[in-house]
């Protein structure tokens, strides 16, 4: 893309194409479940890995901060609040931005430079309906599910750390976790992660379909997709905090 004007033209065209593609159910429906598995289910290991260590570090850090100042059962409060409101959605989003954003941009970029996207168009199949829509829908649906799992794992690892490495009992940890619990903590995190999924997949598709210039161009598109995906997550995180909290 050569400048802001071309970017805006392309973005406008994408909005028109997206509306048309959504209405073309028969083309994207068959692709939706395979993409949900590929972008969501296959991302579970990396999300769990991140969540385990997030829980451990949160428990240890809060214990360090609270020592001799705040009752230690507040470790449970901090772990639960931080995992559900912020670290669960954002760190999972970041990890998936790398995995999903790179995957989508590289796959579609390769299809673009090898003329597979042109081939789809000559078969009267919209690339937006066949390639973009199922990926964006799959990521929007699966990011919250993976995040929900990451939240649970983060809490468990925080509890395990508190019980085994700190002088806390399970009852005390749970008491802290329930102290300021609000159902909004969960849905706020899940709404955020849905928007992260949509942004990461859309940017990945956009960069991939606009890749130019062979392997080097695909590499550039992939890098841009990951960087922009991470930036979008941070911007959306601030936006939802302003709007919903």
């Amino acid at each position: 893309m050569s400048g802001p004007r071309e970017f805006l033209t392309l973005s406008g065209r994408w909005v028109v194409e997206a509306r048309r593609a959504l209405a073309d159910g028969p083309t994207w429906r068959g692709q939706l479940f395979p993409q949900m598995k590929k972008l969501g289910v296959d991302s579970v290991p990396v999300a769990v890995f991140v969540a385990v260590f997030t829980g451990i570090v949160l428990a240890l850090l809060s214990s360090y901060m609270f020592t001799r100042a705040i009752p230690l059962y507040f470790v449970g409060t901090l772990v639960a609040k931080a995992v559900m409101l912020e670290l669960g959605p954002v760190l999972t989003g970041m990890a998936l931005a790398g995995r999903v954003g790179a995957n989508v941009a590289a796959e579609l970029g390769t299809m673009r430079v090898t003329e597979q996207v042109d081939a789809l168009e000559t078969l009267a199949i919209s690339p937006h309906a066949y390639l973009v829509t199922p990926r964006v829908l799959a990521a929007t649906l699966m990011f919250p599910m993976v995040t929900a799992l990451a939240m649970a794992v983060g809490l468990l690892s925080g509890w395990f750390t508190a019980v085994n490495l700190l002088d806390l009992t399970s009852v005390e940890f749970l008491r802290g976790a329930r102290q300021f619990y609000n159902f909004k903590d969960i849905w706020f995190g899940l709404v955020k992660s849905a928007s992260f999924g949509m942004a990461v997949a859309t940017l990945g598709c956009f960069q991939g379909l606009n890749a130019r210039g062979g392997a080097e161009g695909v590499g550039r598109a992939t890098t841009r997709a990951v960087v922009l995906g991470c930036q979008a997550i941070l911007v959306l995180d601030a936006f939802w905090a302003l709007v919903l909290l």
Binding site: M111, T114, E115, Q116, D118, A119, L120, E121, T122, L123, A124
Partner: peptide, 16 residues
């Protein structure tokens, strides 16, 4: 219109 035209690409452009 595209439904009436077949297109053979230089490197085949098969969906891999």
């Amino acid at each position: 219109l595209r439904g009436r035209i077949g297109y053979v690409f230089q490197f085949a452009a098969l969906f891999d």
